[in-house]
Each structure stands twice: as C-alpha cells, then as structure tokens.
C-alpha cells in the first residue's frame, strides 16, 4: 500500500526532522508508529499526506511514487487520508452532518448518496444521535468521533490516525479501540500513539521512531520483548507484556484472552 523509501526531511531552518525513514505499510494490517514526544511522528504523517515535501526519498503508493501536483494529490488523498490529533482543526461546519459531508461534497457526490453515507458512518462510530448537533456543543470525545467519521466517510484504503485516543476518558478510549478494530477489517491503518496498551492490542507490526530515525521495526510481540530498546526510546511495555514477564504467565494478545485464561485456570 503506502511505502516510504529513504525519506529525509528538514525544516526550513535546516534542523533535521526525519532521517532515512523506510516504512512499508503492507507488513501488517495495522501498523503502529511509536516514539517519544518530538520524535517526528506528526512530521512523518504530514510527509505521507503530501503536505510536506521530503528533501530526499519518496512516498510510494501502489508501487508509484506520489507526484506533488494538485490533481495528483487530490486523487491520492481519496485513497490515503488522515485523522489529526486535535479534532478542532478538522471541523469547519457548524453542524455535524454538514461537516461529515464536506469531503463528499468536494468530490461532487450527489446529495442523496451523501446523506446515506453520512448516516452509515455515524452509525459505525456510534454517534448517530449527534447528527443535528452544532459542532461547538460537542464534548472533546464526541468531536474526536466526528473527526474520525468525517475521514472514514471518504472510504479511503489507507488511514493514518494521529493519537486517536489522546485526551479521551477510559470508556471513550475503549470505544475508540473498538472503532479502530472495526475499520481495520477492510483498511490498512497506520497509527501513532503513546498508549502502549492500545498499540499492543491493535497493531501487528511496529516501527519505533526516535529523534527522527527508525531505530527498530518488527512484529508487535518481538518489539515489546526487548527491554533496552523500549527504554532507550523512552517508552514502556504494555501491561500484558509486563505480567507475562513478571508473573510467568503466557503472553496474551489482549485482555479478553487473559480473562479467558484466568477463568479456565480457576475451574
């Protein structure tokens, strides 16, 4: 799907932001990009979207390097799209329906098709009751859902999620996880997050970004078993990995597996 080859990016003042990045999103269904604050995740995402132009290297979509002209990028962004961290940046309209319909109207879709799609996507993120609400009436968590819905409605093949759970309460976080699990069934997802439990649960392949370099990549279970690496990247291990190591339990992929195991054990 999306492939990044030998990408270098510098800010205007010459600070090196990204060095020799190689990422291949087809290595898993859900790709995790993790790293401390300021490690370059957001810059990387803006590069993938074609908003920032790399100094060297290229973004390759379906085997073809992307071109930086308006019409190409427009087509490209129908296939690859992004949900930003701060939902307020991506809500323009005063009510939820119009906001979600925005990109579809930009493509010139018919109004009846649009309304069908908007309702469907609101159902998917569990926000159908918000359809007529004005955007500034929504809570942060609700805004985040609407922001995701506004991008999902385009039905792109690859979806970038920048910190989808930051600032959400535990209940919302869990729901967000379900939403991501649901959409990852038919989409390639690249996700950046500081929530290691979330990353461990939903990603099958991980890249660790540190100071603008990919320091390591690999399958989720393997990445999180390396103590030194995790510490150096200023991260922590997910709790399931920690109980696996400390209490001599098998390595579970998610909480449900763990509970199931415990139930069997107590029988």
């Amino acid at each position: 799907m999306v492939k990044i080859e030998n990408l270098y990016y510098e800010y205007e003042d010459g600070t090196k932001a990204l060095n020799n990045i190689n990422i291949d999103s087809s290595k898993g269904k859900t790709i995790g990009i993790i790293g401390a604050n300021g490690s370059g995740k957001s810059t990387l995402f803006l590069n993938i979207m074609g908003i920032l132009k790399p100094k060297k290297g290229s973004i390759i979509y379906n085997e073809i390097p992307i071109k930086y002209n308006k019409s190409y990028l427009r087509e490209y962004r129908k296939k690859v799209n992004i949900v930003f961290q701060n939902p307020d940046h991506q809500l323009f309209y005063s009510n939820v329906f119009d906001d979600i319909a925005f990109s579809l109207r930009n493509i010139g879709m018919k109004e009846d098709v649009i309304s069908e799609k908007v309702i469907k996507v609101l159902e998917k993120v569990g926000a159908l009751d918000l359809v007529d609400k004005p955007v500034h009436f929504l809570s942060y968590g609700q805004k985040k859902r609407i922001a995701i819905a506004g991008v999902l409605v385009m039905n792109s093949n690859v979806l970038l999620l920048d910190e989808p759970t930051s600032g959400l309460d535990p209940y919302m976080t869990k729901q967000m996880k379900n939403i991501i699990n649901e959409i990852s069934k038919d989409k390639n997802i690249i996700i950046s997050s500081h929530d290691m439990d979330l990353i461990y649960d939903i990603c099958d392949y991980i890249y660790i970004l540190s100071k603008g370099n990919i320091v390591r990549e690999g399958k989720t279970e393997i990445i999180f078993s390396e103590d030194k690496l995790i510490e150096e990247a200023k991260l922590v291990k997910p709790w399931l990995v920690r109980i696996h190591e400390k209490f001599n339990l098998p390595l579970f992929k998610n909480e449900e597996e763990f509970i199931l195991y415990k139930e069997k054990e107590s029988l």
């Binding site: 979207m49 908003i51 990028l73 427009r74 962004r77 129908k78 799209n81 992004i82 930003f84 940046h89 991506q90 323009f92 329906f97 119009d98 319909a101 925005f102 990109s103 109207r105 930009n106 493509i107 109004e111 649009i114 309304s115 506004g150 991008v151 385009m154």
Partner: peptide
C-alpha cells in the same frame, strides 16, 4: 486539514 479533505476553493453547502 482543508487540503486533506479535498477542498477545491469553494465551501459547498448541501
């Protein structure tokens, strides 16, 4: 984000 949402210079209203 307007760029990402395929904005083409006109805010369309349904």
């Amino acid at each position: 984000s307007l760029e990402c949402k395929l904005y083409d210079g006109e805010f369309k209203l349904g």
